[in-house]
Design a protein around this nucleic acid. Structure first.
Lengths: 343, 343
DNA sequence: CTGAAAGCGCTAACAT
DNA sequence: ATGTTAGCGCTTTCAG
């Protein structure tokens, strides 16, 4: 295969132009004025660099400056539409500021997340964006203590000493369940994760709070993260079979809902006629399901923007910034699946 | 905020142990045997490194070796479920071999893609995975000529001189349309992109071929990439209004289908009763739509695995490898939306 | 078997 | 206004 053409280095262009490496470096970094490089020399350098297509080796610059212009981002699963949508927003906006993103999916495992953090560190990333797993608190706080900018999102333990961008899971959940109650449902089950993630706990708390206001009893079903979806469907079918009086289900995540809808289908239950449904997290397609699914929408773009903005601030200012705590509102999107069709 | 604790460097651990930097480096890179380091010294070094938690600076190693252990991946849009699912597979499998991934979304723009390629190069990535935009051929071939491993997927111009992992878009599309014809549909429209992407062209060719076999006439509607979805919905509603004899629609991508389903809904058309639907690319949820949507499934995991495997091969072997051409089969998943419900 | 030392390509303090 | 040069932290050749 082709020869690896010898790449031009800064010194090559300095030599070709018979100027010093420093001058070239200054010009390329927009510090010509600051170091009193003449406009003539500047243009000459710029023109030549353009002509020969020289591009500085970022690795070398990073090694020298200690800044890699890269941020590490840990999501739960990049193929989950919630996380990929946020990743997209972050990528787009942080790119404009000259930063690149390295991603990693934790699969909700503290071990993998820790490994990812370590890897990012080896790559000398300048900052971290993370959807933390339970148990990652110490690792993150350590990073903060060492002075690295860290922003967590989606979930956060109170112990975390860094900026946080979260949604109001409690109220979002509570609103959805109150809505189901308003529509006449009384035996409302909630399907959630067994993982002990903070945002899930809040969603469950919201569910309990709503029920309590009306003196209703909870029916909580916990699913293990990463369980084979087929098995989840089976588990949910069993639940529906054993508790025939369930008249509505509230799902704590979009993917649990997908399994749940499958379970309803296989159980021969028709949404609206037999059972009401609401979901936390509104992925695009819920509007197109038939019936359309009522969902608690998270402000995805807003989350991505806030995360990016805060990280950039922490990245740019060298002075101390207080960590920020952003709590965003969710929005209940009422669709057909939560309608009560009674005779 | 906390002091940036001075990071340990290799020379620090060499000094602490009173051994040479070379010894430490050899041990850390598993070359102790090769360079005849004693087992005793090896253990001593390993133990110490473990104890103080030293981690080599990959940037420095990369600068020195010219290998960054990073690959650059360009997708069309990381928030598209097709691409994020593939990204997930790639990430997972390439991670195990010690590589990291930097992603970028091209938004189907050659300019952005070119910029991303350049950026990746500045970061000295060892290899490239790309879903190419039309017009990126020269840039990619240049990379290949320079000796970089490149694997393209999802689409590829015949001019591309690198390994390719594609699906049989022509047959996949043809099979879906033949299926619609079998079910009695006669005025089958196809909604596709105007972008001139190779995979889209093949899908359109498959559509034409199927119609031709049965002497049917095409109704082709091209949508501009990145058009505001609301506008797309309007455009499709106009189409449905002006061509009232359309009895089925075949969508070339999952997101076009989402707009299309919205348009059908807003036009008061009921799938199965008024119109048949099939889609190229089966994202999870199509099975859960009601009616469930018939779709041409692409072997996502297989695509991700092949891409990863080929790239790793090209990355590891230094000797010449012929570029590989993989063509994977699609699978038509027949669901309710393509059923013909006639009286 | 081990140590010294020369860079990889760049930045920025210090000279001039 | 521009040039010289010492590293950033690592790998690897070469000499002991």
């Amino acid at each position: 295969m082709g020869e690896m053409k010898k790449k031009l280095a800064l010194k090559d262009i300095a030599a070709a132009l018979k100027v010093s490496e420093a001058s070239v470096s200054y010009v390329l970094n927009g510090k010509a004025r600051q170091y009193g490089i003449s406009v003539a020399l500047e243009n000459k350098i710029l023109r030549f660099v353009e002509k020969v297509g020289y591009r500085p080796n970022r690795l070398a610059a990073s090694l020298r400056t200690g800044k890699s212009k890269t941020v590490g981002m840990i999501v739960e699963d990049i193929s989950d539409p919630f996380f990929s949508a946020i990743a997209r927003v972050v990528e787009e906006h942080i790119y404009k500021e000259g930063y690149r993103v390295i991603y990693g999916s934790s699969e909700n495992s503290t071990g993998i997340a820790r490994d990812l953090l370590q890897t990012f560190k080896n790559y000398q990333v300048d900052g971290y964006i993370v959807a933390p797993t339970a148990g990652l608190e110490d690792d993150i706080n350590q990073l903060v203590k060492e002075g690295y900018p860290v922003v967590v999102f989606d979930r956060a333990s109170p112990d975390l000493q860094c900026s946080k961008v979260l949604v109001d899971n409690f109220r979002g959940s509570e609103a959805a369940v109150l809505h189901l109650i308003d529509n006449g449902f009384r035996n409302i089950a909630m399907v959630t994760l067994a993982a002990g993630q903070d945002q899930m706990n809040e969603r469950v708390n919201g569910y309990h709070a709503a029920l309590k206001k009306h003196g209703l009893l909870p029916i909580l079903k916990e699913i293990i993260y990463n369980e084979d979806p087929h098995k989840t469907v089976q588990n949910l079918k069993s639940l529906l079979k054993s508790k025939k009086d369930i008249d509505a289900i509230f799902f704590a995540t979009n993917y649990l809902a997908l399994s749940g809808l499958q379970a309803l289908k296989e159980s021969g239950l028709i949404i609206t006629r037999d059972i009401g449904v609401a979901v936390f997290d509104d992925i695009n397609n819920f509007a197109l399901f038939n019936p359309a699914i009522t969902a608690v929408a998270q402000p995805i773009t807003e989350i991505g923007l806030r995360v990016t903005k805060i990280l950039l601030e922490e990245l740019q200012d060298n002075h101390i910034i207080d960590s920020q705590n952003i709590l965003l509102k969710t929005k209940l999107i009422i669709r057909d699946s939560s309608a009560r069709l009674l005779v």
